[in-house]
Design a protein around this nucleic acid. Structure first.
Length: 726
DNA sequence: CTGACGAACTTTTTT
DNA sequence: AGTTCGTCAG
């Protein structure tokens, strides 16, 4: 057996983890230490060397992206199809189990998965039907409460009455929500996990089957697991101790959504015969960056303890820039990016990382005006767009008529004369008789008493849905989607909407049909005899909710990457700008007076710093306009935690945007030599190409005289003019 | 049922 | 500041 390809390329710690005997393993993998690599090689080791059948390997991740990458890398390493392996997200795997065992999980076969916006709508409607004032009971807060309970494995019936009014009311809402979801066959994200846990817990035979089946269970990003996910893992590995988890307590940044960093500590208690391996050699960043990051994170208490090191050199120090205001900050960053690109760097190797999405705007504007291609992460994804959700709602209704969320969504989209009044009546019947809106609508029609106009409109809607169902029988998936999109008149609706984005919406709907055509049942489904009876449409719909849009098609362009620190986790860039590093922003105001949350912010800082491979710039503004208010934030406390020897302050000489009185020379400042030489050919956004005739002043006051081909001789301020060296 | 206006918000996000 | 959301009038 040739094992060299699997273990040769690994360092000692990695190899120890990969080849460890079957026992509970906790691999503490620092940033850039080859975490995924260890997982991939561990799995390969089991298959190739230990002869574990591929279908009895389970690997759980948090994102689809991570799952996809792992699958791909295993295929590459072993040169086999990774099809039979169970690799997926917690939610994806829970969903798979629930589909297979819908009956035992007490779910209808056609249950549908709701995303969080669906969930919010359902809760809003529920509050309205309970006559609760939204001002007093914000739907968002209720959603948060319900999800938090589910993440802890708590059902409404488990919550003891403490006599507290507020709590009693929330439990009432929670219970009503559970009932509504059950009646509608709707499952939210948290429910997927909770149900999957209950499925195993309450069905001995099912549990035994999967315990038997999975000979090795692997978990990625273990520090991000919540209570119910960990409980599920424990059930699955109970008595077999065949669990291999990889994580980094220093990179736990999702505590606010239920992740329990404590699971790492509990793991060691629950699996007494476990082994811990630390991966501390970093293959990503320079020494300066790592040493600085180590110092910052060392300020947190109760860490497992880990210190990253590298064999490569110290590299250059971290550059710190104190901007006058947020404009100046953006200007500085974009200028640095421009010179990076001028020096032959790729834009896609550059990332601007910020704490909150609102900060992206100023950078976008500057990038836009300098004509620098960029891409902002986050925002609406394909399957979250309104027009797509409308189309999906029609499809869902054809599959499951009692899906209230979908019913409500499209009953009057496009408008067909079913107004608030009719809808109210339907809702009342539904609530009084505890039936779905669909059933209630039929009841309303048969009991009569409606105006002819409203009655006809409602009848037409019910007929439309039934007809969509019968008309699509036997069609290919994409034909179904196409037919529904057309017959529902959604296309027509958006075609009329010439005003803003109607055209784009039509295109998106066409893209949806295309997505259905490309939808590969096998790729989503772990091929298995049990799965044969699953409806392809249901799979497609569930996939839309669970994988809202890995449509990163425009990756081909060479773009500067803009994203929050959270979404940067797991990525790396040669040149990183960590911006807005100010008290109140980062750490965020809401976190400063809570030790636990502050530590999470610090971990976020650690994550951000360790994204950088070669160059790390940290910037803050001395004045910032935020939420329409001018503020004068102090530099972040995290900056003080970086030892001076790893950091050097960048000082442009007297900046134009800075009043002269504020200019104070600081120690350790770097002067920037002019980028231009006499006779050099340059190009300007507006004036086109020209040749440098004269230079004057320096730093931000540097002026330049250029003879432009088209507009003649001009004097420009270098720091203001957008010049490219040719 | 649309459009307009005013109020009330704005950490982080995957599934 | 900028967006989103809900209410009101037409």
């Amino acid at each position: 057996m040739d094992v060299t390809s699997i273990i040769d390329s690994l360092n000692d710690a990695q190899r120890a983890a990969v080849t460890a005997p079957s026992q509970p393993m906790l691999v503490l993998a620092g940033a850039g230490s080859g975490k995924t690599r260890v997982l991939v090689h561990r799995i390969a080791w089991q298959i190739q060397v230990l002869g574990v059948p591929a279908h009895s390997i389970l690997a759980v991740t948090f994102t689809n992206k991570a799952a996809k990458e792992m699958r791909g890398r295993i295929e590459e390493l072993l040169n086999i199809s990774a099809q039979p392996l169970w690799i997926g997200t917690f939610h994806g795997i829970a969903h798979r189990l629930l589909r297979r065992h819908a009956k035992q999980a007490k779910l209808p076969e056609t249950f549908q998965v709701m995303d969080s916006s669906d969930q919010l709508r359902v809760i809003k409607r529920l509050l309205a039907s309970l006559n609760l004032d939204e001002a007093k009971w914000p739907a968002k807060q209720m959603l948060w409460y319900i999800n938090a309970q589910k993440d802890e494995g708590v059902r409404a019936r488990h919550i003891a009455d403490s006599g507290d009014m507020l709590q009693r009311q929330m439990v009432t809402i929670y219970r009503a929500y559970e009932e509504l979801c059950d009646r509608s066959g709707l499952v939210d994200f948290a429910e997927l996990l909770l149900r999957a846990h209950e499925l195993l817990r309450d069905n001995e035979d099912v549990l035994a089957f999967y315990q038997q089946r999975f000979r090795q269970v692997h978990v990625d990003e273990f520090q991000d697991t919540n209570t119910i996910q960990y409980a599920w893992l424990r059930l699955l590995t109970q008595g077999k101790d065949n669990i291999f988890v990889v994580g980094d307590d220093d990179q736990s940044i999702y505590g606010w959504r239920g992740a329990k960093i404590e699971n790492i500590y509990s793991f060691q208690k629950h699996y007494p015969n476990h082994q811990v391996i630390k991966l501390e050699q970093n293959y990503r960043s320079t020494g300066n960056i790592l040493k600085a990051a180590n110092k910052v994170i060392a300020n947190n208490d109760g860490r497992m303890g880990k210190e990253l090191w590298t064999e490569s050199g110290d590299g250059e120090p971290i550059a710190l820039y104190a901007a006058f205001n947020e404009q100046d900050e953006a200007h500085f960053v974009v200028e640095r990016i421009r010179s990076w690109v001028n020096d032959g760097g790729m834009r896609s190797d550059v990332a601007i990382l910020y704490r909150s999405n609102a900060q992206s705007r100023q950078f976008e504007e500057k990038l836009m005006t300098t004509g620098t291609p960029y891409r902002v992460y986050g925002g609406l994804r394909f399957f979250e767009r309104a027009e797509i959700k409308n189309a999906l709602a029609y499809l869902r209704l054809t599959s499951n008529r009692h899906d209230d969320a979908s019913f409500e969504r499209v009953i009057n989209t496009p408008t067909r004369g079913i107004g608030a009044k009719t809808l109210d009546e339907i809702r009342n019947i539904a609530r009084d008789r505890a039936v779905s809106l669909w059933t209630a609508a039929i009841a309303l029609l048969t009991q009569g008493g409606m105006s002819a106009r409203a009655g006809n409109a409602l009848d037409a809607f019910l007929i439309l849905i039934k007809q969509l169902d019968t008309d699509t029988v036997g069609l290919e998936l994409f034909e179904k989607v196409q037919l529904v999109v057309e017959k529902s008149q959604l296309i027509e609706l958006y075609k009329k909407d010439k005003a803003d984005k109607g055209e784009e919406k039509v295109e998106n709907l066409e893209e949806l049909v295309n997505a259905a055509r490309l939808f590969d049942k096998a790729s989503v489904q772990m091929v298995d005899e049990n799965d044969a009876n699953l409806s392809e449409l249901d799979m497609f719909l569930a996939n839309a909710a669970l994988e809202a849009g890995d449509m990163q098609g425009d990756d081909f362009d060479d773009c500067v990457q803009l994203m929050t620190l959270h979404s940067a986790k797991g990525l790396e860039f040669k040149l990183v700008f960590l911006v807005g590093v100010e008290e109140g922003l980062f750490p965020s105001q809401q976190s400063v007076d809570d030790v636990g949350r502050l530590e999470e912010e610090r971990r976020l800082c650690y994550v951000g710093m360790t994204r950088a491979m070669q160059h790390l710039y940290i910037t803050y503004a001395e004045s910032r306009r935020l939420y329409g208010r001018e503020s004068y934030p102090r530099p972040s406390r995290f900056l003080r935690e970086i030892p001076a020897e790893h950091m050097q302050e960048v000082r442009l000489r007297a900046s134009v945007s800075r009043p002269a009185t504020v200019v104070k020379p600081r120690s350790g400042s770097i002067q920037m030599p002019s980028r231009y030489k006499l006779g050099q050919r340059v190009s300007h956004v507006k004036f086109g190409e020209g040749v440098v005739l004269q230079l004057e002043g320096e730093g931000a006051q540097e002026r330049i005289q250029i003879n432009f081909k088209q507009v003649g001789i001009k004097w420009l301020i270098v720091s203001m003019a957008q010049l490219d060296v040719l």
